[in-house]
Design a protein around this nucleic acid. Structure first.
Lengths: 255, 255
DNA sequence: TCACATTTGTCCGTATGTATC
DNA sequence: AGATACATACGGACAAATGTG
């Protein structure tokens, strides 16, 4: 494929803040700048790149939103090289969902299918450390449940740990993104203690099957688990929709 | 799950350009602003939000990078509401790949597994329009090949069309993101006419199997196709690596 | 073709808030 | 508490791009 990215670029001449951002990005790609390194202050950067501070500010904004740097205010602050790209991807997925680009049913369906694949690879590739982390996770969750506390965080983490165990980072990104949306959704509608207990029980059974390399049993359990979650989500969605149906519509444009 | 997003927010008080960006985002989510609508000029916005123009500019930068608006310079230009979130997600995936966060093998593996699922759903859900577009795609590709022209664009489009036919938008996002990386990679190393011809032949066979609802044959063909692509990519990667191994390392920091 | 108006892009100076020492 | 360093934000100005008459 011809490199459209580069061939078609000059249609709109790059803005200088983009030039600045790209050259800093290149330094990160090339390893000259590494995570933890601090960039000079805005004024310094403006001098070195021979541009105004506004240009530098917009370049930093671009890098910040692309997950390359974080910025701290105050003395000794400034821009620090970080890698929060994955977090940014999740943010955008969340936006896409909020834009109504992805209905909840498709989200759950995709999650089920992708996690089934993940489970397959996890059974194949999980090492001792992965199994230890998963076991620790369900133990912590069970302990909370016994104290009548919902183990929501642990229950989410279980899926992340599973994705990690698959040893494929694309799966980790995708699973985390989808779960960020699910998590955001559930945080709005709320799951109760009973559901949380149920989820933990499923997770314990799934982990046991993984350890015994019982592939079919693990997948069956997982499918049942996800369909259960789907149904609960579905009813919550319908409930929320019917509640919102008659709440007056808002008016007014830009303050 | 407690809503960390909102609970932990005030750790770092929101900056005003973020406030501005969020309130415009809300207007888009609520449908008050729709795709195609144009925002007032920066100066107008500054007046209406009662902030400086610099603040507005950084807010617009945020919206632009989040895929909510595009910006044109010059008379009659300005910010227009668009939806390019998916394109932004692909960009970030590309960055993640360039950061070395995802080796090419994991990428190809994930693509194979996810596209297998996609294929499954496509056979189940593809309607007449989907099949027409796919047929048109392979016809165009075959025509090019006969003229000894590589059908690279068509060959990429085939996978996008397949994802669309699955009727699940998450699959579309994921497939397009992964293919953006593959495409970028292939554009650097280059596939020749022979490979392109081979790919088209595979696509024709796969489409035929889809039309006949021969699920197993379609999956088998697809797997063979992807493994073929994987091997070709793999050898190209090794070739490029060995070439780069002795190219001098660059020096110098910030111009 | 040529001005003209509009709008973004960029720069500078200055003031304020905030975190560190 | 005070000094320092830095991002944040404001206002004014000019340059560059782009569509319009």
């Amino acid at each position: 494929m011809p490199d459209f990215e580069h061939i078609f670029r000059p249609i709109r001449g790059r803005r200088s803040f983009e030039e600045v951002a790209v050259s800093i990005k290149e330094l990160v790609f090339d390893g000259v700048l590494q995570v933890g390194d601090r960039l000079p202050s805005e004024i310094q950067l403006a001098k070195q790149f021979n541009v105004g501070r506004q240009t530098i500010r917009e370049a930093l904004r671009l890098l910040e939103l692309s997950g390359f740097i974080t910025i701290q205010r105050g003395g000794g602050g400034g821009a620090t090289i970080k890698n929060t790209i994955l977090s940014r991807i999740s943010d955008l997925f969340l936006d896409a969902f909020r834009m109504g680009m992805v209905p909840i049913e498709e989200l759950t369906q995709a999650r089920l299918e992708i996690e089934k694949v993940v489970l397959h690879y996890a059974i194949q590739n999980a090492d001792g450390e992965d199994l230890r982390l998963l076991q620790e996770n369900v133990d912590r969750a069970r302990k909370k449940i016994k104290k009548n506390i919902r183990a929501t965080e642990e229950n989410f983490e279980f899926h992340t740990l599973l994705a990690r165990a698959s040893k494929n980072r694309i799966f980790v990104i995708v699973v985390e993104s989808i779960m960020a949306i699910h998590g955001n959704y559930i945080s709005r509608v709320g799951f109760d203690l009973e559901v949380s207990r149920n989820v933990v029980t499923f997770h314990e059974a799934i982990l046991k099957a993984i350890k015994r390399k019982q592939r079919k049993r693990a997948v069956d359990l997982f499918t049942e688990h996800m369909l259960d979650v789907r149904d609960r989500l579905q009813s919550l969605v319908e409930q929320e929709n019917s509640e919102r149906r008659f709440s007056g519509d808002r008016a007014g444009i830009l303050p």
